[in-house]
Nucleic acid binder design. Structure first.
Lengths: 228, 228
DNA sequence: GTCTATAGCTGGATAGAC
DNA sequence: GTCTATCCAGCTATAGAC
């Protein structure tokens, strides 16, 4: 799998890196799946955009599902690891703040891809799309990639908010994921409504507004009981 | 178009209502588009599930796009109208509260379909899926349906939060849409993470937790300036 | 309005040469 | 590992009889 790595530095000389076939297919597939969704793009299209024959794609990945799974895992693993690392850092602090926990959870997800050679936010869009697809396949991919770091974050939140009932905390974590996913989806709705004044694609700006908003929500008094 | 109406009361007798072909196609299409997405379901599948010939479907709707557009508009119009009605009611009040405005915006969207003969939340899922698709067609459908009522809500929010800067308000409205859309998507993530303790499909429960959470977020002090 | 039949493509996946 | 060639199922949309 090591030749999948797209970040290999050429040994010497000015020759272009000549990305491997696998790396080209992964980069192109990520782009196209993000733009058009699982069913919106064919492996033929991906192969031809990556300048690879259809048969070669099938040789490397077999089923279409495998291609998506490998694309997803390649990006998701570093995100989940960075999350774990940041959460551990925050919790090693003498007095961890709610804001720091939220930032540690959100930042790796929102900035993923930004510093890569690809367009940035491409993976974020792909992830947002999968998050709203109810099919078992999409759910398993997301679950495998992010359940551990999500549980870790819920535990950290409970620690900085010891008085918040667990059920309330779960709902609020659900709302947190909603703001994160919708920001990653970059659906264009808010730009359209505000004439472009507010751009969820601007990650630093999004985090600067998102963290205080969520922190206030998490600190709100718990909801009352059902009217019954 | 009047025979599209699925709520016609039979004139007399115990005969089953015998829904029109159009009504059957709209109901079935809504269900299948919501479950599988725009590209995940063919008009053949819809026609056969509705017990209608493929040619009949094409006679009534022509392009596949028209079918989705009619399905969407049929549900979206009442939602947008109810929103407008509730917002007007709230604003006619001597001292409108932030909570009341949020409830007026969210309730029609989240409860749509709940009282219908279909599974409820079917339309909500469809809407959530379209909201994360970047294609122009999906965006136009959503924009046509909901831009007016969204703008109306932003104005109402500005009125109950006169000191909040406009840019901050726009970001927070974006976050509000995120929590709404993700709740409508009912992705199963939070159920999986909490062992089913928290269910976004339970609309009353969702609203009871969502409104205080968002209200606290909207009332937070505005975010600081960029670090620059 | 509804049907059967079909045109004309595109889809995922494979065979077999090199 | 990569290619050309191919299978065949499925797709949207239309034609034309009734």
């Amino acid at each position: 799998m090591s030749e999948t790595d797209a970040t290999i530095v050429p040994a010497d000389g000015a020759e272009p890196p000549a990305k491997s076939v696998r790396a080209r297919l992964i980069a192109t597939g990520e782009q196209l799946f993000a733009e058009r969704g699982w069913n919106g793009v064919s492996i033929r299209t991906i192969a031809s955009a990556a300048d690879v024959s259809l048969a070669a794609l099938n040789y490397h990945f077999g089923l279409k599902e495998n291609l998506l799974a490998e694309i997803f895992a390649a990006r998701a693993r570093p995100i989940a690891e960075e999350r774990m690392r940041l959460l551990a850092l925050v919790e090693a602090t003498p007095a961890p703040t709610l804001e720091a926990v939220l930032d540690a959870f959100l930042r790796p997800a929102l900035t993923a891809g930004t510093d890569s050679q690809f367009g940035g936010r491409v993976f974020a869009r792909l992830r947002a799309r999968l998050a709203t697809e109810p099919e078992a396949f999409s759910r398993r991919i997301l679950s495998d990639a992010f359940d551990d770091s999500s549980r870790r974050c819920i535990a950290a939140l409970q620690r900085v908010l010891p008085d918040l009932p667990g059920e309330e905390l779960n709902w609020r974590f659900h709302f947190l994921m909603g703001t994160m996913v919708y920001t990653m989806a970059d659906s264009g709705r808010i730009q359209a409504l505000t004439g472009g004044a507010c751009d969820p694609g601007d990650v630093e700006s999004a985090l600067r507004h998102l963290v205080p908003f969520l922190a206030a929500g998490f600190r709100a008094p718990p909801a009352g009981p059902p009217p019954s």
